[in-house]
């Protein structure tokens, strides 16, 4: 049941003054176990060597290959053609700066996010190379790992209504990152410190809770729970802020 697949791919090279945004069509015979990684590389090799797209691990681990496949953001490398109809439309992720064709610049946005969330363990303890490591409950380590699994693919941000309207919105990925550190006892930041980062419209109060993010997250992160929890905690922290005797 070999099919011929028709790919409609968004094309635009901002560095080329002769290029304008348009769609190109490519036809490819489908092979067994074909993924979009295999298909796009074949198109580049056999039909258009200038076609821009990003793959790195091609194993669903690194987050490089997010794009919009038939209207839905997802990882191209773990999209099998047999799960798609004969006509496949590929667009670059919206929201991020376009590099060309299907390639976007996610690195700049995510690094900026890490700086804004101050994405590291805040502690004044010095590391002592002679001492045993501090103990941690394994169940807690696994809970932290659960939130650490984000691969910064950008799907959640690309699908988010708030992010499209507010380019400075931290997005589900950013809010989840803060939640990860809030869970970690090694990080000594208080709820008040968290409030300063996300207790605003660029943060948790900008989120409309429609959960497109959780829906598209290829790593199935529990974004809904994390956003709900943050909203609740930050709501309280906000109220505390209004009480003068509670203010620090």
């Amino acid at each position: 049941m070999a099919r011929n697949l028709t790919f409609s791919i968004f094309r635009y090279n901002p560095q080329d003054p002769t290029s304008t945004p348009h769609t190109d069509t490519f036809i490819l015979d489908e092979t067994n176990h074909m993924t979009l990684f295999i298909a796009l590389n074949r198109i580049r090799e056999e039909q258009d060597p200038g076609l821009q797209f990003d793959f790195c691990c091609r194993a669903g681990i690194c987050g490089a290959c997010a794009m919009v496949v038939n209207g839905r953001p997802g990882l191209a490398c773990h999209t099998k053609t047999k799960d798609l109809p004969e006509n496949i439309t590929l667009m670059p992720l919206p929201f991020f700066t376009l590099v060309g064709d299907l390639s976007v610049d996610t690195g700049t946005w995510f690094r900026n996010m890490a700086q804004r969330v101050r994405s590291w363990v805040h502690t004044d303890k010095e590391f002592n190379p002679r001492a045993l490591e501090e103990r941690m409950d394994n169940a807690l380590a696994e809970e932290i790992y659960e939130l650490e699994r984000c691969i910064e693919c950008g799907c959640c941000v690309a699908a988010c209504g708030t992010a499209i309207m507010r380019p400075d919105f931290l997005g589900a990925a950013g809010l989840n990152r803060l939640a990860r550190f809030a869970l970690d006892p090694r990080d000594k930041r208080t709820e008040q410190d968290h409030f300063e980062i996300v207790g605003n419209d660029q943060g948790i109060f900008g989120c409309m809770g429609l959960l497109a993010c959780e829906d598209v997250c290829p790593k199935h992160l529990p974004l809904q729970d994390q956003l709900g929890m943050l909203r609740w905690k930050m709501g309280w922290a906000g109220i505390m802020n209004l009480l003068p005797w509670k203010r620090k």
Partner: peptide, 18 residues
């Protein structure tokens, strides 16, 4: 061993002995 402990201090959620 020192490097692993340092990573623990920096935030790696190593699996732990149960």
């Amino acid at each position: 061993p020192i490097a692993m402990r340092q990573l623990a201090a920096w935030g790696v959620p190593w699996n732990r002995v149960v």
